[in-house]
Amino acid sequence: MNGPLVPNEILTPEMGLAFALIAGLLFGFFLERAGFGSARKLTAIFYLQDFAVLKVMFTAVVVGAVGLLLLGGAELLDSDLLAIPPTYLWPQAVGGLLIGLGFVLGGY
């Protein structure tokens, strides 16, 4: 079981930092290609015009979740070592609400 590579010390933390740049590059590039450089496109979902934000987010989460499950099941990835955000219901709910408000107000 190789993955996750840095926690299993197959890659050093320094290589992990280098990978941070790659992860960001990919993420930023695909977000821009989806059109999320545009505040108008980003907020359009809240005016029931363009549902790209929902489609992208939902697809990404489903693909990610299925992929991680498959990798875990195939024992290529040690799922126990995955960092899972802890649940703090009220802060996450109120924070999410504030972000939604700020998002539609600011456009980003």
Partner: peptide, 13 residues
Amino acid sequence: IGLTLILTYYVMG
């Protein structure tokens, strides 16, 4: 983006 997420989790945890 989903594939990027998988890759990031696989490398970093």
